[in-house]
Amino acid sequence: MPSITALANPTRFMAYSAKLLPWLGGAAAILFAIGFYGAFFAAPADYQQGQTIRIMYVHVPAAWLGMFFYTLMTASAVGALVWRHPLAEVAQKAAAPIGAAFTLVCLLTGALWGRPMWGAYWVWDARLTSMLVLLLIYLAIMALWRTIDEPTQAGRVVSILTLVGFVNIPIIKFSVDWWNTLHQPASVFRMDGPTIHPSMLWPLLVCALAFSLFAIWLHLMAMRTEVMRRRIRTLTILAADRADRAPSALEGLAR
């Protein structure tokens, strides 16, 4: 079993992740099959929400992953700022679109769940609103990544924004909850009802695990791409440098 410091070496990372990827993908596929079978056939309809409870099996894992990837970005941001490790920057950059996509899925499925349950696609429910703000922060981070060309500087600057955002998330959560209780009409259905029944819990857990493994597969894939992108950048700069010094090499490049 390789230690975490050995894995942090980009070359080793490429080797180990290449071995890990098919196993992750396969495990995710099997768990998706079991989880969705459970979600659609084994789990009963809810006595209160009827068949719409089946949206939960996508909605809840997506919400969970949306928050998980922000935590991962925060940990990577600390790694990038404190240890100045390039792989931490790579992990952070690759995580942003994935986290944003799962947050978006959480919002879309939440809206489609809200229409039959609350009578409106969008209600300014405290949880949905917090997730919306999380999506906005993800989008801001992605916008900043796209603006700065030099990868190391981009990594450090984005790390600071990620950390500032992380400090802000509890403040935003508290504010939105406060705002919501002040404005919330009393008749709205609450999702945190009685504790969930085991027949619904196991498909939810299997689906959550399947989504998580798939998300990690996507993340490793995106990280590998980013490592290659950086290598391409270095090679191109080196080649340009060499062409600069020896004009004759220019012909070789232009060929």
């Binding site: 922060i137 935003i172 508290f174 939105v176 705002w179």
Partner: peptide, 12 residues
């Protein structure tokens, strides 16, 4: 884009 989401608590 970066500042507005973080300004929400103050606005509230």
């Amino acid at each position: 884009i970066m500042a507005l989401p973080l300004m929400i608590p103050t606005l509230i």
